[in-house]
Amino acid sequence: MLVMEFKAVLKEPQKLAINEAIRTARFIRNKVLRYWMDNRGKGKKELYRYNTQLREEFEFVKDLNSHACQASVENVERAIKRFFDNCKKKVPGKKGYPRFKKYSRSVEYKQSGWKLSPDKKSIKFTDKKGIGIVKLKGTWDLWRQDIKLIKRVRIIKRADGYYVQFCVKTDNNEQLEATGYTIGLDVGLKEFYTDSEGYFEPNPRFYRTGEKRLKFYQRRVSRKKKGSTNRKKAINRLGRHHLKISRQREEHAKRLARCVIRSNDLIAYEDLAVKNLVKNHCLAKSINDAGWYQFRRWLEYFGQKFGRITVAVNPAYTSQNCYICGEIVKKSLSTRTHVCKCGCQLDRDHNAAKNILTRALSTVGHTGTLFNAWGEDTSTLSGSGLEEQVTSLNQESPAF
C-alpha cells in the first residue's frame, strides 16, 4: 500500500465542514464502542447494524458518507481485536482495552463520497457535510495512478493545516544488485548508531536543540487567558514547533535507514523494547529524542522494499561480551571503552555492533539460510539469539 499525501488548500467554511466531519466520525466511534461495552458478546454484524441505527436516529450522522461511517466502525473493530489478541498472547502489562476518544484529527472515506478532478489536482467530497472541492498541493504523481486502485482517502488535521492522504494499492518493491556487505548496528544516546565497521553516526538531538524555543512558546500559552483567541493562537504555534521537531526526527531516521539498506545485503540490529526503556525517568527524554523506533521501522520497511534481509537480535550482553573471545567484561554506562584480557580494546558501541552482527550471522547459519529475500517472517531455532524475526512493514508514509 502506497500513501500519497497532499496539502489541502481550503477556505474557512471548508475548514469548519471538515471539523464537523471529524467530530461526526469520532461520535460514531465512541457510540459504537459504548454499545459493545454494554452488550458483551456482540459481533461484527451487530456493530454495523448499530451504525445503521445511528444514521437513522441522528441527521448529522446521516450527512456523513455511509462508507466514512463504516470506517469509524472498523476502527473500533480493530481496537477490540487488538485487545483480545494481546490477552491471548499474554502480553505483559496493560492489554490495550479500547478507550473513548476525546480528540481526533482525521476522517476516512473509502471508495465513495469523493471524486477526483480529471487533472487530479483537486478532489470533491460529495457527501452532505459541505466540504466541496479541495485543491491539492504536493509533488506526488497522482495522475499516474488508476483511480480504481485508490482504496482510502483520509483528511487529516495537523497544527500547520489540513492534509489529504490517498492510500493506493500498488507494488512499489524494487530489486537491487547484491553488494556483498553485511552490517551490525548498535543504537545509542551518545552517537545515533555505531556500525560493525567502526563508523559513528552523530546523534542530532532535535528535541534538545529546539527545547529552548519550546519553553518560550509554552510560557506564552500559560500567560494567555483560558478560552481566549490569543491562547488558541499560542497553542497552535506551540503545536507547530512540536510538529517541526517530529518531522525532523522522522526524516532523519528515513534518510539513514534508506542509505544503510541500499548499501548492505544483511542488516542486524537490536530487538530493543523501547517502551520499557523509557520507564527510566533519567534517560526517557533522551531515548525518545533519539527516535530508535522510527529508525527500526524504516529499516524494516526499506528492507522489504529493496529486497534486503533485516534481522533483530536479542540485545542481552551485546555490550558486555568481548566479540573476539566471548568473555564477559562487565562495565557501567559511563565506561565507554571495552578492554578485555585477550588484548581487545574497542569503543564499547563498536564492540556491541560486532557482537550483533556475529549473532545474526550465526542465527542465519543455524536456520539453514531460511531467510526470505523480501524480509518476511522466517522460522528460528530456540536459543539462537533471536527473540523474534521482525516482519517488514508495508507502508510508504509515517503513521497517520
Rank of each mutant, 00 (worst) to 15 (best):
K11Q: 13
K15P: 09
M37D: 02
D38V: 04
N65V: 06
H67L: 15
Q70L: 06
N86L: 03
N86D: 05
K88N: 12
K95E: 09
Y97A: 08
Y97I: 02
V107C: 07
Q111I: 00
L116K: 01
S117I: 00
K121W: 01
I123T: 00
I133D: 13
V134N: 08
K137H: 03
W143G: 11
I150K: 07
R154Q: 12
K157G: 07
K157N: 14
R158V: 06
Y162D: 01
V164I: 14
K169S: 13
T170W: 01
D171K: 14
Q175E: 05
E177A: 07
A178R: 15
L189R: 03
R208Y: 07
L214E: 10
Y217A: 12
R220I: 10
K225Y: 03
N230M: 00
N230I: 06
A234W: 07
S263A: 15
S263Y: 01
N264W: 05
I267R: 04
Y269T: 09
E270M: 10
V278K: 06
D289W: 05
Q294C: 07
G303R: 09
F306Y: 15
N321E: 10
C325H: 09
R336I: 07
V339T: 12
G343S: 12
C344I: 05
D349C: 11
T358C: 02
N372Y: 07
T378G: 06
S379N: 14
G385N: 07
Q389T: 00
S397M: 14
P398F: 02
P398M: 00
